[in-house]
């Protein structure tokens, strides 16, 4: 059975690194994996997605509407933007974090205030927390992407695999300790 994970957020939030570590881990644990990411203009502060699909044999790297088993939103209105991709009964992980887009910053559009309430009232399997606060408590706010990855791994039920080893294989030595803490903190939320 193929599983589909959609990462959504804003260019520059570290989505690609989080999905890369997930992908490397899934391969290490014996899955066929396809991952698709967006480069170029969209990365400049725009809404970005990374898609990961894994299972015994995967064909399409893309996830359609109503097909994601897990949706991980690195920013909360991005959760609302992409919610239609989450399949009924799927899990939603939301970083309680706001990034205003330019139309909001210059007053052309409003940043909605009801996002979390709406998500809570509609989605059953839902985890909302501030990855930034967790990462800050660990000592490096920049690890919030790995905290979110930890929460995703828990949502997938894959927390018993050797993710510490995966981090060690894929990050430079000086970044390993803090990111191992981050991924574990994410799994324990």
């Amino acid at each position: 059975m193929t599983k589909s994970i959609l990462f959504v957020g804003v260019g520059g939030q570290g989505i690609i690194l989080a999905s890369k570590i997930l992908t490397e881990g899934l391969i290490k644990f014996g899955y066929d994996v396809k991952m698709s990411e967006v480069h170029g203009m969209a990365q400049r502060g725009g809404s970005v997605t990374t898609q990961v699909r894994f299972g015994e044999k995967v064909y399409s790297p893309l996830i359609g509407v109503g097909e994601a088993d897990v949706l991980v939103a690195f920013e909360k209105v991005e959760a609302a933007r992409w919610i239609s991709y989450l399949k009924e009964g799927g899990s939603l992980v939301v970083n309680d974090y706001e990034i205003y887009s330019m139309p909001v910053l210059i007053g052309q559009e409003q940043y909605p205030q009801n996002t979390l309430d709406e998500l809570k009232s509609k989605v059953e399997n839902l985890k909302i927390f501030s990855a930034a606060e967790v990462a800050q408590d660990l000592g490096n706010i920049k690890t919030q992407n790995i905290v979110l990855l930890g929460a995703l791994i828990k949502a997938l039920g894959l927390e018993n695999l050797d993710w510490e080893g995966v981090i060690k294989d894929n990050l430079p030595e000086k970044m390993q300790e803090i990111n191992i803490k981050a991924i574990k903190a994410g799994m324990n939320i």
């Binding site: 609302a80 919610i83 239609s84 887009s101 330019m102």
Partner: peptide
């Protein structure tokens, strides 16, 4: 496919 929808007015987020 069965999915979710929320009543949130999502602002656009163009690259900048």
């Amino acid at each position: 496919k069965k999915s979710y929808s929320v009543d949130v007015k999502v602002p656009s987020r163009p690259p900048v």
